[in-house]
Computed example of a mutant assay.
Amino acid sequence: MDWSNISECYIRNYNPISEFGGWGIKSSFRRDTGKAYTIKGSIGLQLKLKNGKKILIGTQKNEEIKRVIETYKHKYTHNDT
């Protein structure tokens, strides 16, 4: 996936049971939630793609992911016009 396909990127808390039916590689039964790749915990990197799809990647390294988002923010917030 190319950075230019991402419209939003942020850390969020999630409920693995109610949103995705547990941990693992899951597609949500709710249309607005998307796909998740998780192992444990309830913190994830939420990607919203320009095509409307959503991907949640679970993480136990909240602070490290925040730094990565800040470092690469310019790659997905550029103006397409």
Rank of each mutant, 00 (worst) to 15 (best):
11 I>L: 05
32 D>Q: 10
3 W>T: 00
60 Q>S: 14
40 K>H: 06
21 G>N: 06
59 T>G: 12
61 K>R: 10
61 K>L: 12
35 K>V: 14
13 N>K: 14
38 T>L: 05
2 D>P: 03
43 I>Q: 00
6 I>V: 08
76 Y>L: 05
34 G>R: 03
6 I>K: 00
60 Q>Y: 12
36 A>V: 13
4 S>D: 08
37 Y>W: 15
29 F>Q: 06
54 K>Y: 02
62 N>S: 15
3 W>I: 01
39 I>Y: 13
59 T>V: 14
76 Y>W: 15
44 G>E: 01
79 N>W: 15
2 D>M: 03
25 I>E: 02
69 I>E: 02
28 S>N: 10
4 S>R: 02
63 E>F: 12
79 N>Q: 14
11 I>A: 02
30 R>M: 13
54 K>C: 06
79 N>C: 10
61 K>V: 07
56 L>G: 06
11 I>V: 12
72 Y>D: 01
58 G>T: 04
13 N>T: 11
75 K>D: 05
38 T>P: 06
42 S>N: 12
22 G>I: 06
46 Q>D: 03
74 H>P: 09
25 I>S: 07
24 G>H: 11
10 Y>V: 03
75 K>E: 08
58 G>V: 08
54 K>E: 00
78 H>N: 09
76 Y>D: 08
54 K>P: 02
23 W>T: 09
36 A>F: 10
52 G>K: 03
43 I>E: 04
46 Q>K: 10
19 E>F: 10
33 T>M: 15
21 G>E: 05
55 I>Q: 02
44 G>T: 04
18 S>N: 12
55 I>H: 01
20 F>Q: 00
63 E>D: 13
29 F>I: 01
29 F>G: 03
27 S>V: 14
31 R>N: 11
76 Y>M: 04
57 I>T: 07
53 K>E: 12
55 I>A: 00
36 A>D: 10
15 N>L: 13
12 R>D: 01
75 K>Y: 13
52 G>I: 01
52 G>P: 03
73 K>Q: 12
45 L>V: 08
47 L>E: 00
63 E>Y: 12
53 K>I: 07
1 M>F: 07
11 I>W: 00
51 N>D: 15
25 I>P: 00
34 G>A: 04
41 G>E: 00
21 G>L: 07
37 Y>N: 11
17 I>A: 09
71 T>M: 13
69 I>A: 00
80 D>W: 13
23 W>E: 04
32 D>A: 05
37 Y>G: 12
43 I>F: 05
73 K>A: 08
60 Q>K: 14
64 E>M: 11
26 K>F: 09
56 L>R: 04
41 G>Y: 08
18 S>D: 10
25 I>T: 14
80 D>K: 13
75 K>T: 11
39 I>N: 13
21 G>M: 06
20 F>S: 03
26 K>A: 09
47 L>D: 00
21 G>Y: 04
45 L>W: 03
40 K>Y: 09
49 L>T: 01
63 E>M: 13
13 N>G: 06
24 G>K: 06
8 E>T: 09
53 K>W: 07
65 I>K: 07
20 F>A: 06
13 N>Y: 08
38 T>G: 14
3 W>E: 00
75 K>Q: 09
76 Y>S: 04
